[in-house]
Structure formats: structure tokens, C-alpha cells
Design a protein around this nucleic acid. Structure first.
Lengths: 303, 303
DNA sequence: CTGAAAGCGCTTACAG
DNA sequence: CTGAAAGCGCTTACAG
């Protein structure tokens, strides 16, 4: 039988575990696709640094923030927070002896480096692309109002519209959410309250899941994508490539962001060179089958 | 500053880490949805046992099987293998000092307890449901021939068909694969080689991704689901609920399977009571919008 | 260059 | 019942 060095003993002796932790909040008790892609990127980067990954999950950030401290009991050399962090966090939750990096934090955390995509620009650019294709009436299905990221996406839409002189029209921004149910309900409600009026030529949603829900609602109402209406999401999740037609969306460079998070975590010197407000990564517009030039004016069917 | 017990020291002293490992092979370099759901189930169960989860990934089972040994260096108290295990594995890769459980292994591993869904029965039951709805000509798009699971699904179809006296007809089983491209190509090819002949009334695919590819090919050919043809997948991935119409599929009790894997890993006594061939969990048929009674006979369009 | 010793931070069996 | 010691399995600084 071969000799097999014991990891716990090595860790104790060397003072490092060669492992990094990833803490996520489960929304609705489930890990989501966005987290899956982040995890994938982190794992890839960690393997390059010869580090293992330990996954910590929380159900409710407000109630369990104190658990973060227990993750820092020496079993990881650093922690990536891949959680929206809806609640404000007090620094006491973050022990000083472990490096932290947050990925796409909702609120910037005191003393924690944050990495996020440029949601404002991504959203604004998508809207401008649609306008370039001659869309003028563009409905926006917003995300959860209490989330910073959703707010930035909405602001991107508003900015692009008003810059092109298309703002103004009421009822062109509706409340939605980040789930497909939210998107579906939002569209069904809009269609009900706007019977006999003309349909917008495009819909932009705060994320892919919401856009997929919209597509469902449109399909049920007999409205064809992209013939009657164009639709776009945000995130480029795997699901966006699996709808028919495939969903146009805004891609975040998740692998690059995750790799950077790992690099910063493992190299204290690199952390010094990052501005305190964190790193913002550019996004990329992906136009797919769900977007076309507006073809015909369509009126919302009556009862 | 508070006292914070060091996990490495505790582990060294007590001889256990309070952590379990999950090893997965990345297909195409990416964690997939199926793995996400498994991971989610494992995390839930592990939290109940107050254990953490460490994720190990491999790109190629054949080349990296030896790495399994390095996962067993004392950093985990047990290892769940969530990998298809395409290659035959020799027992030397599995150190005796760490408990193993495999989830849905392609080949049973010597001395490793395996947990899997009843793919044969799931597939057979779905086919019988279609037959009950008066479908008689049911096309089967098979998965990768070298995978045990795909073979069992195909056998389930064959068994159900022949039991209902519907076997016989040639060209009703086509080669496919587990990706949406595979499904799409399979259908396009079938349609091309069967011009002018009558369309089957239903298609059963080896998994959801393949079925989604089929739906795309059908949509491009102007064949309506479920009006012209019904279609069913297998796995109940998130994507299956996001197609239009939503895909009928066979659900595996992934959370229950993952929980059982964790329980067995952590309780040696429980392991003794399991038969050496492992545990087989029942599946559930989900009939959604993609399946209907056959309505009209449709002929494959010519050139 | 080699080998014995100290120390990492805990837990637990043992002596007082 | 309390407190000092041994031991978990490594690494590394130090003595020979």
C-alpha cells in the first residue's frame, strides 16, 4: 500500500488548506444556473492554482450571515461570496484572517473586493441595438426592485431610450422579477390591460429566465417571436440557447470574472492594485433568433 | 477577538473532516444541468448531517481516474462519484480507507455502491402512456450506444412496443445522442430519408436535450408539436419546462437519490443493508404540452 | 547532507 | 473534577 500524505496534517503544518470556499445563497432552495456557471469558472481557475473548491450554501442571507464565520475555520484559504447579498452586512461577519472576494454583490461589502459585469452598459447597448433595427416601442420587464443589479439594468434601458428620444411613453416599463413565472405573469397582465392597443415591437427583460417566461406567455397568446415581436434577455444562461427561437441576450464574461476572483483571492499583492470600488467587466451583446426588424404592426387581441 | 477552532487541527485530531467530496466529469469542459441538480440534492443532505461539500472535477475519466486517489488524502470523509464512468475502472483507483458511493454510474464499479434511477421502467412507462393515448408508430431517438443508461432507455422502449405488439417496423429506432445537436440531426436525417411517407405520431428521445433538438428540427420543417406529432424526453431538466410547448419527460428523483447517497456514505451500518447491485429508484412520468392524442395523419413533405 | 526534534492546534485518555 | 501530557501526521528549522 502506497504512502498518501494526509491533507489535514499538511494543512495544519503549512497553515494552508489549498482550498478555496464558494458561498452561495440558494434562491427558492435551489442552486441556480447562474451559480452553476460561476462555479464552473471558479473550479477551472482553482484547478490551475492547484486548489480545491468547497461549496457552502445558505438559504437566507439575513439569518445565516453569521455562518460565514464558521466557513472561515481554517478549511479554506479564502472565500468567494457568490451571493446577491440582499441585506446590508456588518463587517463583524467577516473574520479578518481570511481573504474575501465577492462576485456580483448586490451591496458593496465593507472591505470586500467586488467583481461584477457592467450591467448598465450591457442593458443600454442591447436597447440601442434594437433601436438600430428600427424598434421604437420597446417594453421593459424589470427585475426585483430591491436588487442593485436589476436596478442598473433598468437604468441602462431608460438611458438608452431617452438618449434616442424614445423615453416618455407610460406603461412601457412593467414590474417583473428574475424568475420565468414573473416574466410570464408580467406579459399576461400587460396583454390583458392593453387589449385593442398596438403591441410593442420588442420586449427587453431583466434576465433570461424572465424572458423565457415572456416567450411562454406570448406563445400562449398566439404572438409569434420574432415575427410579431422581438425579445431579449440578460445573462446568456444555457437555457437561453435552448428556447425556440433562441433568445438574444447579454453575455457576462463569467469565466473571466470567476478566474479573476480566484487570482485575487490567492495573490494578496494583486489585491493591492485593485481600486476599492472593485472590478467591472464588459458585457457582450448576443443577437439570436428572437430578435428581428419589426415587420408588421400587431394589435393586442380583444377578449 | 473570538476563539475560532481550527478545522485542520480538529480534523487531524479526530480523524474526520466533516466533509464529503463530490467528483464529477465535465462534459465538454462544463458542469451540466444534471450535475447541478445532483449537487443541489447532495448539498441539502450534507447540511442536514452537518457536513461540507468539496467539489472535484475531471475532464477525462480515462486519463484522470488516478486523481480520485488524491481526493482521498484525508480532506473528505467519503466520496460520491457523480460521473458517467465511461471507462472500465480497476479497483486500484479506489483507496480502501475512504467510503465511496456512485450516482448513476455507467459501469458498476467493483466494490462501489451504485444508486440509479429505473431507466428501463421509466422509458417503458412513457411509451405505454403514448400507446394508451392511441399512438402506434412511435419513433425512438436513441442515446450514445456506449452508455449503459442510454441502452437501458432503449430497451425500455423496445420492451413496451413489443409487449403491445407494435415492435417490428424497421426504421423506427434511429441513432441520436445526448445533445440537442444529435437530436436535431437525427430528425432532419429521418425526414430526408422518408419523404412522402407518413410521419410517426410520436417521438420518444433518450433525454431532454435530444428532444429539444428534435423540436427544433420539427419546427424548421413546419411540423407542429403536439398537433402533428407528440414528443417526449427523459430527465426533467429545467430546459424541458422552458420549451414551447413544454416537453413531456421522465423525472428521476434526484434529490432523493442524492440524499440516499449522502446517508449511505456517512453511515457504514446502512451500507451493509444495501444489496451489492445497488439501489434503483422509481421514475415518474410527466405528461406536458408536447404530448397529445394523435389527430391527423401527416405525410413528410417532399423536396 | 542526513536525521532527530519541535511545532502546527486541536482532542482525549490519563494522572493528580 | 481539573489540568498537564500525549498524540493526530505532517513540515521545517536546526543540530550533528
Amino acid at each position: 500500500v502506497r504512502y498518501r500524505p494526509n491533507a489535514a496534517a499538511q494543512a495544519l503544518s503549512k497553515g494552508k488548506m489549498n482550498a478555496i470556499g464558494v458561498a452561495a445563497v440558494l434562491e427558492g432552495g435551489m442552486l441556480n444556473h447562474y451559480f452553476l456557471e460561476i462555479l464552473n469558472g471558479i473550479v477551472e481557475a482553482a484547478v490551475r492554482h492547484d486548489h480545491h473548491i468547497t461549496v457552502f450554501t445558505m438559504h437566507d442571507w439575513e439569518k445565516e450571515a453569521s455562518r460565514v464565520e464558521t466557513f472561515c475555520d481554517g478549511r479554506v484559504d479564502g472565500l468567494i461570496l457568490a451571493a446577491p447579498m440582499i441585506a446590508e452586512v456588518t463587517p463583524e461577519h467577516f473574520p479578518g484572517h481570511v481573504p474575501f472576494v465577492s462576485l456580483h454583490a448586490n451591496h458593496p461589502l465593507p472591505g470586500v473586493l467586488n467583481i461584477q459585469p457592467d450591467e448598465f452598459a450591457g442593458s443600454a447597448t442591447m436597447v440601442k441595438e434594437l433601436i438600430r433595427l428600427c424598434h421604437k416601442r420597446i417594453l421593459y420587464v424589470a427585475g426585483p426592485a430591491h436588487m442593485e443589479g436589476a436596478r442598473r439594468r433598468l437604468e441602462g434601458y431608460r438611458h438608452a431610450m431617452s438618449e434616442e428620444g424614445l423615453g416618455g411613453e407610460p406603461d412601457l416599463v412593467v414590474e417583473g422579477g428574475f424568475s420565468s413565472i414573473n416574466g410570464k405573469e408580467a406579459i399576461k397582465k400587460w396583454l390583458e390591460t392593453h387589449r385593442g392597443e398596438s403591441l410593442p415591437t420588442a420586449i427587453v427583460c431583466a434576465n433570461d429566465a424572465s424572458a423565457i417566461g415572456c416567450q411562454e406567455a406570448l406563445a400562449e397568446a398566439g404572438i409569434l417571436v420574432p415575427d410579431d415581436i422581438s425579445i431579449a434577455g440578460f445573462d446568456d444562461t444555457l437555457a437561453s440557447r435552448m428556447t425556440v427561437p433562441p433568445l438574444s441576450t447579454v453575455r457576462q464574461p463569467i469565466a473571466a470574472m470567476a478566474a479573476k476572483a480566484v487570482d485575487l483571492l490567492l495573490d494578496p499583492a494583486a489585491r493591492e492594485t485593485v481600486p476599492p470600488e472593485g472590478l467591472i467587466f464588459p458585457t457582450e451583446i448576443l443577437l439570436r433568433g428572437s430578435v428581428a426588424k419589426p415587420r408588421k404592426h400587431k394589435v393586442v387581441a380583444g377578449q
